Deep mutational scan, measured.
Amino acid sequence: TFELKGKVGKVVKIAEDHYLVESEGDKWIAYSDEKLSLGDRVMVVDVDGLKLKVKRIP
């Protein structure tokens, strides 16, 4: 299986209740415990079905 946990991506869209993150050339629906901005670099900390939980990284 394709393992996304630990992968790095970038926030490419902000929606009302989720983010769109591009990682490894694909776009994924993501959510975070912190507020993210367009262009933020993020790391995948968990995968919930087809949704990614991400956190901001420097």
Rank of each mutant, 00 (worst) to 15 (best):
T1G: 15
F2S: 15
E3V: 01
E3Q: 01
E3S: 00
L4S: 15
L4Y: 04
L4V: 15
L4D: 15
L4N: 15
K5H: 14
K5E: 15
G6I: 00
G6K: 00
K7Q: 10
K7S: 14
K7H: 08
K7M: 14
K7P: 01
V8L: 14
V8Q: 05
V8T: 06
V8D: 09
G9L: 12
G9S: 02
K10A: 11
K10N: 08
V11L: 06
V12A: 07
V12F: 06
K13N: 08
K13H: 06
I14W: 10
A15W: 12
A15C: 12
A15D: 09
A15F: 08
A15T: 12
A15R: 10
E16M: 08
E16C: 12
E16V: 06
E16D: 07
D17Y: 10
D17L: 12
D17Q: 10
D17C: 13
D17H: 11
H18A: 10
H18M: 12
Y19A: 07
Y19D: 01
Y19L: 09
Y19P: 00
L20W: 07
L20S: 07
L20K: 06
L20E: 07
L20I: 10
V21M: 13
V21I: 09
E22T: 07
S23K: 00
S23H: 05
S23A: 15
E24V: 03
E24Q: 04
E24R: 01
E24F: 03
G25C: 12
G25L: 05
G25M: 05
G25W: 03
D26P: 03
D26H: 12
D26L: 12
D26R: 05
D26Q: 14
D26G: 09
K27V: 11
K27C: 14
W28S: 02
I29M: 09
A30P: 00
Y31C: 14
Y31M: 14
Y31H: 10
S32F: 02
S32K: 13
S32V: 04
D33R: 08
E34H: 06
E34G: 08
E34P: 03
E34V: 05
K35D: 09
K35L: 10
L36H: 03
S37K: 06
S37E: 10
S37R: 09
S37D: 10
S37G: 08
S37C: 12
G39D: 13
G39C: 13
G39K: 06
G39R: 06
D40W: 05
D40C: 11
R41L: 13
R41W: 09
R41C: 14
V42C: 12
V42W: 01
M43A: 06
M43L: 14
M43G: 03
M43C: 14
V44A: 03
V44R: 01
V44F: 15
V44G: 02
V45H: 04
V45Y: 06
V45S: 04
V45I: 10
D46K: 02
D46W: 04
D46P: 01
D46V: 03
D46Q: 03
V47R: 02
V47W: 06
V47N: 03
D48P: 02
G49N: 10
G49T: 06
G49A: 06
G49E: 08
L50S: 07
L52C: 05
L52P: 07
K53W: 08
V54I: 06
K55Y: 04
R56H: 09
R56T: 11
R56W: 13
R56K: 12
I57F: 08
I57T: 07
P58K: 04
P58S: 06
P58Q: 05
P58F: 06
